[in-house]
């Protein structure tokens, strides 16, 4: 059973349609990337999952029931804009959030200390947040999201503002949560993180879903780029819609950029060339990156906005 199921979810703010008929499901142990430009509706969707704001229409289920206080205790959340009480100590902050999520103080303290140990902050457990560096405070905030060992971990732009070391630590925690059976949903602009971590992805544009599937499926949305060193006869091979001569080489050879017709694969093209004696000195296929897919589906203007 999906831990998070969203069906035809819509949210309007006055005349603005922030989320438009969104549907998707996330299974336990799955890492789900929530990709989209600024204002695409990612944060609004996460806030609806957290029951901070109510949907205009649509259905939203967490572990089979609508968002409520009980299932909120099974959620861990790291917001994009982060902050904690400056005059509280690290461990007191973790215990406070743990207790708000229904934990007993002793259990919250024990796991809070374990998390601080894991994040290299064991010796700063009693230090006040206001006395810590920004990086340390962000680790404490991550600990507040994990203290209840959530079944659903929601991370809103989790990598923004983190240095490479802390980005690595966060990636490790995402993978750990997934290994322990938690569903992880995170929104991001950084495609490398999504490529490295996500089992499945969802691309949003202006509140509407543009794509949902695995990374391979996403990359397959765009045709592969094929580079070949061949002679002029390559342009007449069936299945090639366009052969662009990029660089002339010696003895009639040239570097070509090939574009396939819809439904044709690079393997079919290579097979045809070898069986029909079409001369080739180099045949190289490069698949579309997630960044390319993102730019194509979401658009440059979304990134810049």
């Amino acid at each position: 059973m999906a831990i998070l199921a969203i069906e035809d979810l819509t949210k309007r703010f006055g005349d603005v349609l922030a989320v438009d008929g969104l549907s998707f499901k996330v299974a336990p142990g799955e890492i789900f990337g929530f990709l989209g430009g600024n204002g695409a509706g990612k944060t609004t969707t996460l806030r609806m999952v957290l029951d901070i704001i109510r949907p205009t229409s649509g259905r939203l289920e967490i572990a089979g029931s609508t968002p409520n206080r009980r299932n909120a205790q099974a959620i861990g959340f790291l917001p994009e804009e982060r902050g904690l009480y400056g005059n509280m100590s690290a461990i007191d902050t973790i215990i406070y959030f743990g207790r708000l999520k229904g934990l007993e103080p002793a259990a919250a303290r024990a796991y809070g200390l374990e998390l601080l140990e894991r994040f290299g902050l064991a010796d700063r457990a009693k230090a006040k947040i206001g006395e810590m560096s920004k990086g340390m405070a962000q680790k404490v905030q991550l600990a507040t999201a994990l203290v209840n060992r959530p079944h659903l971990l929601l991370l809103d732009e989790p990598f923004s503002g983190l240095d490479p070391v802390n980005q690595g630590l966060l990636e490790e925690e995402i993978l750990r949560a997934s290994r322990e059976g938690a569903a992880v949903v995170f929104s991001t602009h950084v495609m490398q993180h999504a490529e490295r971590l996500c089992d499945r992805l969802l691309l949003l544009r202006r509140g509407k879903k543009r794509f949902e599937g695995t990374l391979d499926e996403a990359r397959a949305l765009l045709p592969s780029r094929i580079q070949a060193v061949a002679k002029e006869s390559i342009a007449g091979v069936p299945g090639i819609s366009r052969a662009t001569r990029c660089e002339p080489l010696a003895e009639g050879w040239s570097l070509y950029q090939l574009q396939l017709e819809a439904g044709r694969s690079s393997a079919q093209l290579l097979e045809h060339c070898t069986t029909h004696g079409v001369p080739l000195r180099r045949f190289e296929e490069s698949r579309a990156s997630l960044h390319d897919v993102f730019v194509r589906l979401v658009g440059d203007e979304e990134i810049e906005r």
């Binding site: 806030r47 957290l50 901070i52 909120a72 917001p79 804009e81 982060r82 902050g83 009480y85």
Partner: peptide, 18 residues
Amino acid sequence: VEERSNKLLESLLACIRP
């Protein structure tokens, strides 16, 4: 005001109702 300016509210509202 401190909760608001320290961007704490979203974390709190993920745990409890307004």
